[in-house]
Amino acid sequence: MRYMTAETAEAASTALAAEPGLARVLAGGTDLLVQLKAGMIQPDLVVDIKKIPGIREITPEAGGWRIGAAVANAELKEHAQVKADWPGVVEGANLIGSTQVQGRCTMAGNLCNGSPAADAVPGLVAADASVTIVGPSGTRVAKVADIPAGPGRTTLAKGEIVTAIHLPARAPRSADAYLRFIPRTEMDIAVASAAVSLTLSEDGTVTHARVALGAVAPKVVLADASTIIGTKLDDAALAALAKAAESVCNPIDDKRGTIEFRTSTAGVLARRAALIAYNRAKGVK
């Protein structure tokens, strides 16, 4: 295995594209080093992207935010304004691993790892966030939702790296929330998860909503948010949302949960996350 630190995104991309063997990007390394330890992969090249200018920075952008791909989630959590705009995105990112893991792990890494249970991804999808991708054929922008391709797989081409995540501007009376189910209180992989982002009218009616579910399908899935649009999240709307969430679940039975459990829990979490987001949007603590 060779190790290189890239000075620019283009240099990283060139090196990754040119490597005939297995190449991997190193940002926080909290998945990469686990895979190395387990002998799951034996890369020929690892490219550390943390020295690329701006890749560890959070900057305001078009009313929203640009989060550099190597920003550690602990740093994200300490950014009060991002947290105020996108509390659900930040809480999802901050559920990955321990305090120690938070000191290293990144949202971009979580996305590119391709896990269906990634905690940062449902919040980004609910936020309709985008990513900038630098690759051999130039720079492109894609929706976060279009990156995962299935367990452990992404739509990124060889040599392509994510350099930044873009969170859009927030309309007034908007908020998001993320909930996941784990058996313990910390340190587990999500058994099911739900992120809800919504915007309210002045009278408290939901005018816009996106609901994304994690760990219940090969990749993050959207539930039908029209179940709550036009409502004030009355019980019937919440029940409809839960049902809509359950209906898009296509989970597996494994050591972490059963199909039935994941499905019913996804519905519960979608409902609860919607309520939290709703109250946040209304300014209720």
Partner: peptide, 24 residues
């Protein structure tokens, strides 16, 4: 694998698992 914390150190003031950081 970053699950137990017994290898905790700080790098540039940030708490990390040293098993999840490369020596380089």
């Amino acid at each position: 694998t970053g699950d137990c914390g017994a290898c905790s150190v700080t790098v540039n003031g940030r708490l990390v698992c040293s098993c999840l950081v490369l020596g380089v």
